[in-house]
Amino acid sequence: MILKTFIKRLVPRVLEDDISLLSPKTVVLRKAISHSGFKFGLLLFISIILLGILGPFFLDISPYQQDLDKRLLPPVWIEGGSWDHLLGTDGNGRDYLSRILSGTRISLTIGIGAALVGMVIGVTLGVIAGYFGGWIDQFVNYILTCQLALPGLLLAMTLVFLIGPSIPVVIIVIGCLHWTLFLVVTRSVTKRIAKLDFVSASNAIGATKLQIIIQDILPGIINQIIVIFTLEVGVAILAEASLSFLGVGIQPPTPSWGLLIAEGKEAIFFQPWLIVLPGIALFLLVVSINMLGDGLRDIMDPKSKLE
C-alpha cells in the first residue's frame, strides 16, 4: 500500500487524453510501472544479484571445504538429507548451496561480460557496414564469413589454452566468438534506416556522420540489440559451461554453474539434483534477463501504447 501511494506521488497523474502533456521520461516510468513482465523480470534479476553478492556472507560454510564422510548427500527434502546441508553435497562433500551461491557471481560476470564484449564488436561492425556500405560492407561480410567458418569451441579452447585460463580471458574469448548475431541484425536494420528520409534530413542540417549514427540510427536498432543481448547472455553462460567441462574454462575448485553441471554429469542417473539445481539457477537467470529485455524493449519503444 505504502509503495503504491509512493509510486502515485512519484508519477503525476494526468487525464488519459492528455498523455501528450507528459514528458517522455514520465511516460517511460508509467509504462514501466504498468508492465508486469518487466517488473517480474527486474525483481527476479535483482534478487539473483543480491543472492550472488550477499549470499556467501550469510552462509558460513565455505564452498571449498571438503568433507569426505558426507559425500553426495541429497537435499533436505529428499530422504537422507540433513539441515546442515540444505541442498546436499557434491562428490567431494562440499556444500552445494554454498557452491551455487558463489557460482552466481562468476556465471553472471561471465554471461553479461561476454555478451557485452560481443555486443560492442558486433554492433560496431554492423553499424559501420550497414551505414557506409560499399567495400567496407564487403570487408565486414568477409570477416563474418571467416568467423562463421571457424569451429568456435575449438578456437576458444586453443586460445584459452595458449593464454592461460582466468575469468577475464574466458570472458573476452567467449565474447569474441559471439558477435555474429549482433552483426547480422544491426547491419540489415542499419541499412534499412540509412535509406529513410530523416537521415537525409539530418545530413541537410549539417549533422556529422557520427552524430547521425549515434542519434538517428542507434535509437532505431536498440530494441533489436536488447533482444539479442538477452539471448546471448544465456548462450555465453552455456558456452562457459562447455569450456569448463572441457577443462579450459573456469578451473576447479572455483565454482561456476557451468562447471557444477559438468561435474554432476557423471551422476545424472543417481544424484540428479547435482545437475537439476544449478540448471534451475541458470534457467531462472536466463528467464529473468529475457523478461527484463522484452520489458525494456516495450517500455522504450515510443510506438507502444501506455495503458
Binding site: 528520409d197 530523416f198 534530413a201 541537410a204 535509437p219 532505431g220 510506438k303
Partner: peptide, 16 residues
Amino acid sequence: IQPIFQDPYSTLNPNH
C-alpha cells in the same frame, strides 16, 4: 538550404 521530403512517415525519426 533545407529539404522537405515526400513521405511523411519516414521523414521523422520515430524515436525522437
